[in-house]
Structure formats: C-alpha cells, structure tokens
Design a protein around this nucleic acid. Structure first.
Lengths: 98, 98
DNA sequence: TCTTCATTTCAACTATACCAGAATTATCGA
DNA sequence: TCGATAATTCTGGTATAGTTGAAATGAAGA
C-alpha cells in the first residue's frame, strides 16, 4: 500500500529522461537485462547510467541481481502497479476522464 | 496523446511533497480553489506556494483563472488521465500486476 | 595468481531546484 | 484616487541533482 511519501520518491525516480527510457526498455525486454546492454539504449557514459540505475533501484522500480560478471536489471511491475493504484484511487479518486 | 517528454514533465511536477499535496487537495475539492485557501493545506509561505503552483500549471496538471481578487486553481483531470494512460499502456504495456 | 571484463564508487564540478523576503501587479470598495 | 486584499514576480541565497573521468571492486578465465 503506497503512501504519499513513497509516491513522491517513485515519481521522482521516473521523472528523468534517461531513467524513464531505461525503465521502458526493461519493461519491453520482459526479462532481466545486463547494465551494459542498457548502454546501447541511452546516450550516456557508463558512470552516468550507473548513477541513474541506483536511483531507480532505491525507489524500488527496478531490481537487480548478479549473474557472473553482469548485473541484471529488471523492471519491478508490482511497484509500478502500486504507483498506478495510488495515482488512480488515492490521488485522483477514480475520476480521471476515460 | 502524451509522449515520453511530456510524461517526464508531469511526473516531475508531481514529484514533490508540497505539489502532490496541492494537487490532491484540488482533486478532493472537486471545484476551483483560491490560492489563499491552499495555504491552509500546506505549511509553506505564500511565495513558495506560488512557486509550486506555477510548476504545476506549466506541466498542465492544474489550470487557473481569475475571479475578482482571487486566482482559482483546479486539477486538470484530463492531463492526469493522459499520464495514467501513458504509464499503463505505453510505459508498462498493461502488465502491471493487478 | 594475473589479466580482463562489467560495473560501481569516488571526487570534483556544473546546473538546476527550491526557498523565502521584498517589491510589484491586479482588483475591489470607500 | 486611496487603502486594503490576493497573489505574483523578482532577487539572492542554499541545497540537491546530475554529469563525468579516474580509480576501485567483484567475477571469470588463462
């Protein structure tokens, strides 16, 4: 059950061009993706990507596990589901048009 | 039809404790609210509130019209609806749990 | 164990967000 | 037109976010 404070954190994590692009890539992939592969999707150096991945991870919108030398990132759809529920019900009271 | 760039702007507008509180207040009110009345909902000086209202307005999540000496603010539910659609369909491909 | 690879953390910097007092604009009533 | 009211913009701060190269870490293969 997401509260206002956590919602702000998640919204902030997604409110950046690079981070949103990374998240969308992970959703589209449908499976864990190594950090290095994400570099081909966004035009930033590895250190910058790492900085943003950390932000996404801390907000709980992506998860991460090591496999060999790679760190595999995946979108956490349950966190996103929680955000959507918060925005729709708690925040908008279900009265968004359509 | 919201694109990624606009989504980042809207997400950024909502990603702040005071701004999210203001938006939720406007949704709950269900009708336009004068800026001064919003001061009772958030614990910030008038200039700070004005700063945040401008941010919300520029992102399109609230609208504003003058009535006498007051400026009445209202939540723009169509923009929010657009964001929710973007997050659900374009961004998450409809696969958030529940 | 030494080297390479994938990625992160560190350090230093720049840019932007945020805050709030002072001054300003707009409106209304007397 | 004057004073009061409602809210904003202006201005100058401080804090935090973002960027990036260099160095460090953890894992695997020779």
């Amino acid at each position: 059950m997401i509260e206002s404070e956590q919602a702000v954190a998640i919204l902030g994590a997604l409110a950046h061009e690079t981070r949103l692009a990374v998240f969308r890539t992970l959703v589209r992939a449908g499976e864990p993706v190594p950090a290095g592969a994400l570099l081909h999707e966004v035009d930033v150096p590895a250190t910058t990507l790492s900085f943003h991945l950390k932000a996404l991870k801390e907000a709980g919108v992506v998860s991460c596990r090591r496999e060999g030398r790679s760190l595999l990132y995946a979108a956490d759809m349950s966190t996103m589901g929680g955000l959507l529920r918060f925005l729709t019900e708690d925040c908008c009271r279900g009265l968004t048009k359509k």
